[in-house]
């Protein structure tokens, strides 16, 4: 990852440093910086947060507080394929929880985690705006609707 390198020779840290330099004097810029950092690294591990702390002067504890406050920031890496299970009202009453449980079982992991091979990550979200297809899951930009748990292994096999 290389973010803790002192001279920032790797490209990702250079990119993040440029973002920080451009933003750091603007009040309230921490969230923007963290968004960019997540874009660059895919998630916000401790090394990235320390890098932001070192270069902005914002305390690490405060950064961690912001990262854990907002659901869109992730402390864990995302997979090559990002699965999002809709737990909005319509999907929920149509059995989204059963779909989610089956995904957890098939992938042997919990919500928020990433498979060891980095292939899949699993998240739950609120309404994706496809209530007519409930229950719905998204994998990257693909949408799968009117699901029953037994369809899950077949869908995963496509990736």
């Amino acid at each position: 990852m290389g973010v803790d390198c002192g001279n920032c020779s790797d490209e990702k840290s250079r990119k993040l440093l440029a973002v920080i330099e451009a933003e750091k004097d603007n009040p309230g810029s921490l969230i923007r910086i963290l968004h960019e950092a997540q874009e660059i690294y895919g998630y916000l591990p401790i090394e990235v947060q320390k890098f932001v702390a070192d270069n902005t002067g914002i305390p690490l504890a405060e950064i961690y507080g912001v990262v854990t406050f907002y659901a869109q920031f992730s402390l864990k890496p995302k997979g090559q394929n990002k699965i999002n299970v809709c737990l909005g009202t319509a999907c929920y009453v149509k059995g989204a929880e059963g779909i989610l449980d089956r995904l957890k079982k098939e992938l042997n992991m919990d919500v928020g985690d990433c498979t060891e091979d980095g292939k899949f990550s699993l998240d739950a979200c609120r309404c994706v705006g496809a209530c007519g297809l409930a229950p719905v899951i998204m994998i990257n930009d693909d949408c799968y609707g009117r699901l029953v748990p037994d369809q899950v292994p077949g869908i995963l096999a496509k990736y």
């Binding site: 305390p59 690490l60 504890a61 405060e62 961690y64 507080g65 854990t68 406050f69």
Partner: peptide, 8 residues
Amino acid sequence: SVIETIER
């Protein structure tokens, strides 16, 4: 600055 509010 070692403590903060965490999560929500």
